[in-house]
């Protein structure tokens, strides 16, 4: 089963959610120092939007990915399920989580300062503030995903992949 955490840029909310999922950052307490050291944090470039990045495998053998999907998260959610079905897989093989609802003003402003104006220090500071503001909400989303039943990934002939 593939779990894809997606947000507008891919390397902020999605990376935090995927890292919470995999236990790479403290689940109970927000820790900004922990977040900025994450391998994929602030690493996805504009030309890499739309690409899946593998982050790790959880205890239930689910593969966890991040992706930057701009404002096409809702569309991609349906596309991936459709494509999985077309290629003979169960459509619940893919769990696509669109985190764009948790993009707030601070995050937007931070990315603008960081990516458009080149004020990296201020930008990252604002981005982290934005993440902190919605940290509990993201934790809830991740917890819900982890509580979902895990489906074995098989093709139409029943062979595991």
């Amino acid at each position: 089963m593939k779990v894809i955490y997606s947000c507008y840029w891919g390397s902020y909310l999605a990376v935090v959610a995927a890292s919470l999922h995999l236990g790479l950052i403290d689940f109970d307490k927000y820790n900004k120092d922990n977040i900025i050291t994450l391998t994929m944090f602030d690493k996805i470039k504009n030309e890499e939007l739309g690409e899946l990045f593998f982050i790790g495998t959880d205890a239930g053998e689910r593969e966890v990915y991040v992706m930057g999907s701009k404002s096409s998260g809702e569309i991609l959610q349906k596309t991936f399920k459709g494509i999985a079905q077309i290629y003979g897989f169960r459509n619940d093989l893919v769990c696509f989580i669109n985190l764009n609802a948790y993009v707030n003003g601070l995050l937007f402003l931070g990315v603008f300062f960081h990516k458009s104006l080149g004020f990296n220090k201020t930008g990252i500071k604002l981005i982290l503030k934005g993440i902190e503001k919605n940290y509990n909400a993201i934790k809830k989303v991740v917890q819900n995903v982890k509580n979902e039943p895990i489906y074995e990934v098989t093709d139409t002939e029943g062979g595991a992949i």
């Binding site: 690409e51 899946l52 593969e63 992706m67 096409s72 569309i75 991936f80 459709g82 999985a84 290629y87």
Partner: peptide, 23 residues
């Protein structure tokens, strides 16, 4: 397939998805 206004991104996402599915 309707791709909305981000057709380039969606195409890239489909190809990336297939690659990660081993297809």
């Amino acid at each position: 397939l309707g791709m909305g206004s981000e057709r380039k991104l969606i195409k890239k996402a489909i190809l990336s998805f297939l690659t990660h599915m081993g297809l």
